[in-house]
Design a protein around this nucleic acid. Structure first.
Lengths: 380, 380
DNA sequence: TGATCTTTTTGAGACGTCTCAAAAATAGTG
DNA sequence: CACTATTTTTGAGACGTCTCAAAAAGATCA
């Protein structure tokens, strides 16, 4: 296709006039507009400002424009200024696709927010996480592509996204043992960074994590201090590192305190309010009902609280209750919880990923953060 | 850079051998591998399979490969087969950036999921919405780019994304009166489709919506049937079409039923649990306390319920309670709510957007869905 | 002034794809 | 078989950017 300058020359007007004419700008009279339009039509030109147009207007070479726009040190300030002004005048916008092709990168990072057929995450923590990751990415001129991963063969979706150059790398959460996504991405040498991984064996990939065992230990110590000994655990089905670590920590704390875990004190359910409420009921109806209930997260605690309320068990007088994640629900319901420094974590995670993408890996690619206990009226 | 064929020729081996050698494949012996590697180094070649390589292997022209891979009718089945096999053998993956540049489209749609500094949406409805939109997009080989919009000048972010060819169009939610994003995108002729818009005046853009007035009317009629007359409303601050429509509908229903709305029956708060609980308290402490409380959504209803529980007002015996959106919390708490057909809506929305992107606008670019009342124990 | 060194600009070429007009192959017809 | 009509393949070129090696301009010094 022709350039703007060619159209302008053909119409016998200055470039800027041609530009304004094609933009239907008021400053150009009707006759000129039509004339320019005809020239454009003849050359089969549609207005689309590129670096070449800027070069023509500023009277420099296209290479110079590229350097100037990218703030290269090579370019003389005066020239840069000239170029920037021309760009401004023509309302230039970089074409990302062209840059991507040339540089073989995309400035996009993938994150699978939803899992197909199981979209109701109800996970305020991850919501906050993804918000901060997006912020971190955008500050570095990256963008986030969110996609749905299937329950089976999720790794293929990751493979497809990376090998078609749709994304430069991935953020991964909900890491499982022997996670096929991680295996696949590692094999492909595709950049990725995970939220979670410290309690996986041989995790030699980039991750950030919050020490879940430490978090539960904070909860347990707090409950012990309050005089509790009969403490129940409302956890998730095993097989997920996050949940398993929390349960391990609970057991360790009980053992260290010399307290026997009675039958029925531990229940496992999926991360659903109803199930949590029912599980709480089961625990409270066990032979030696606990005086405190530790929940795997705030949603489970909410479910448990609903059950306790419904049978008029007072919190914390009859039963103390704790959650995990410090989400808005727990704040509202006054449930003692564990705060995770999601903001810093997300930032760090993206930094690590960016290092890998740029082939300049950070020295420390595995960072562990500390959780914080947030005491509320559900335990005191 | 050189092509795989050139490397193979230079090393004096068949293309496939060269390919496998560069992949460190076991089937190629050490000597050949090194030989090929040297040839590649000499030509400054790094393995990256393109359509040209497929063409070389299949013995056809590169144009043929493109046609074949895109299932063009032009290509003879036998040829297509040959090409596909070659592609398979070389593990070919399309380079999206190149296609995007050539076709001047991206296959990406933008959606601003979070608003800067106000990330805690706690909006299960929109979460489901975005899940279904993503699914709809991916079924059509599109992807979703989620970004954070600033509180001020959000339209600039939209402009930047579209004018740099980062996205082909937008999904928009939380539409306001005189929404600057819509003004901007309309002025730029950028494709977009909104969730919400039926109660905006002169909304001549593409949207889908669920009739919010109708939804509240369903709630009100249900409450009237249950014998309620003193009905309060827990709504949002005015200025948002969604909320305003609900309040208007409440007022119309009361007027049609010939019931005077007493002082203190209507409260407005932000979409926060705490605020909702406090507002509920205010309403219930008004001079003529209502016997039923209609909430703008389920989160507000949850907040209200917490207050009612805390003062031992029984639901529904002392006060009936309704929400809106039919989210998991309402399901769990047994709160009567209004279901919106989010799944169909998201699908329809994306179809409309896709039509606009492809410059083949659907005939019906504004679709209104009907809400459904879900009666639970909070009202009977 | 001319020679040398440094800074700045230039212009070509490549990234991988799609698509057009033109060429080649094939089928159909008398 | 020759000719036309149709189907299929070809190969060049364009999309807009970045970057390299080379050229030009400017600075420094004898």
């Amino acid at each position: 296709m022709a350039t703007l300058k060619e159209v302008a020359d053909s119409a016998g007007v200055p470039m800027l006039t041609a530009f304004r004419a094609l933009n239907q700008h008021d400053t150009v009279d009707e006759v000129t507009r039509r004339c320019v339009q005809e020239a454009a039509d003849k050359l089969n030109y549609t207005l689309k400002i590129t670096q070449i147009d800027i070069a023509d207007l500023a009277g420099v070479a296209k290479g110079t424009v590229s350097y100037a726009l990218n703030n290269s040190e090579l370019i003389k300030p005066a020239t840069r200024q000239k170029v920037l002004e021309a760009a401004q005048m023509l309302g230039y916008h970089l074409n990302i696709s062209a840059r991507n092709l040339r540089m073989n990168r995309t400035g996009v990072v993938g994150y699978s927010w939803h899992v197909a057929d199981d979209p109701s995450r109800m996970n305020n923590l991850l919501d906050r996480f993804i918000y901060r990751v997006t912020m971190a990415a955008e500050e570095r001129h990256f963008h986030l592509l969110t996609f749905v991963q299937p329950q089976k063969n999720a790794d293929r979706v990751y493979e497809s996204l990376i090998s078609t150059s749709r994304v430069d790398g991935f953020i991964i959460s909900d890491v499982t043992y022997n996670d096929p996504r991680i295996a696949r991405l590692t094999a492909m040498r595709a950049p990725f960074a995970a939220f979670g991984g410290m309690y996986l064996e041989n995790a030699d990939f980039a991750y950030v994590d919050v020490d879940g065992k430490k978090g539960i230990r904070l909860v347990m110590d707090h409950l012990f201090e309050q005089g509790h000994e009969r403490i129940g655990l409302l956890g998730w089905p095993s097989g997920w590192p996050f949940g398993d670590a929390r349960e391990v920590s609970y057991r360790e704390a009980m053992r260290d305190a010399g307290i026997r875990i009675e039958n029925g004190w531990i229940a496992h359910t999926h991360n659903i309010l109803d199930s949590a409420a029912m599980a709480a009921q089961k625990i409270m109806n066990s032979k030696f009902p606990p005086t405190a209930l530790v929940c795997a997260n705030d949603l489970m605690a909410f479910g448990a609280k609903s059950y306790l309320d419904s049978v008029n068990l007072r919190i914390p007088d009859d039963v103390a209750l704790t959650g995990y994640d410090d989400d808005p629900t727990a704040q509202f319901l006054g449930i003692t919880s564990v705060h995770q420094p999601i903001d810093e974590l997300a930032e760090a995670l993206f930094e690590i990923l960016l290092g890998d993408i740029n082939q300049e890996p950070l020295p420390n690619r595995q960072i562990i953060f500390n959780p914080e206990l947030v005491i509320r009226r559900s335990t005191q």
